[in-house]
């Protein structure tokens, strides 16, 4: 087997990587870094501390890797869901830890959402960066306000009937956020 037959595909891949813009590198690396941070936040004992943690981490990282190449993929829902499951498996979860994990996932999600708006060789002009950052301000504000409300109400003990109300609220929220057409 000629060496060039082995080396040429790799060389072509590396040449294709040259076409990826700085904007895309920045957005995708932010997405990866923030999600990895969220994973570390959800598994403070170590991402490979035990078999289940290792399994969750591996699956989350695999889904993240796919999302790096395809920012718009539906598989991108796997990493944050796995992180939330990992958080759920913790015996003690503080509000700060949960909020930190949520914030990191938000940063990752926002970065991948923006990366999906342009092709791999596309660049963001300065106005695009400013617009995107400005748009995050109400999200951050709403998150903080809602978090304060949740923290304030978390001490209130309600009966089992709250389960039904809670599930109904979740379904209503889901339908509100997702319009009928897709």
């Amino acid at each position: 087997m000629r060496l060039s037959a082995l080396v040429d595909p790799i060389a072509n891949l590396l040449l294709d990587l040259q076409k990826v813009s700085r904007t895309q590198w920045i957005l995708r690396l932010i997405g990866v870094a923030a999600m990895v941070l969220a994973l570390f936040g959800a598994l403070p004992a170590g991402v490979f501390a035990n078999f289940l943690a290792g399994l969750v981490s591996t699956l989350a990282l695999c889904a993240l890797l796919i999302q790096v190449f395809r920012p718009d993929t539906d598989i991108g829902v796997a990493s944050p869901l796995l992180i939330i499951l990992a958080l759920l498996s913790q015996s003690e979860v503080s509000a700060l830890q949960a909020l930190g994990v949520g914030a990191a996932m938000l940063v990752s999600h926002a970065a991948f959402a923006l990366a999906a708006t342009i092709p791999a060789h596309g660049v963001f002009e300065g106005s695009a960066w400013r617009l995107a950052l400005r748009a995050m301000l109400p999200v951050i504000a709403l998150s903080l306000i809602a978090a304060l409300v949740v923290i304030a109400l978390s001490g209130i003990r309600l009966g089992p009937w709250m389960l039904v109300v809670g599930i109904a609220a979740v379904i209503s929220l889901f339908l509100l956020v997702l319009p009928r057409t897709r």
Binding site: A42, V77, P80, L81, I83, I84, L85, L87, L88, V93, S94, A95, A98, L99, V101, G102, A103, M105, L106, H109, V139, I140, S143, A146, A147, V150, I151, L153, S154, M162, L163, G166, I167, A169, V170, I171, L173, F174, V177
Partner: peptide, 24 residues
């Protein structure tokens, strides 16, 4: 992700879990 966090929080009785899905 947001609705899943709230659902799991309600089912598991861990309201702080809502904070993880709240930003999204």
């Amino acid at each position: 992700v947001g609705c899943a966090a709230i659902t799991l929080a309600v089912l598991a009785g861990k309201p702080v879990l809502i904070l993880a899905g709240l930003p999204l």
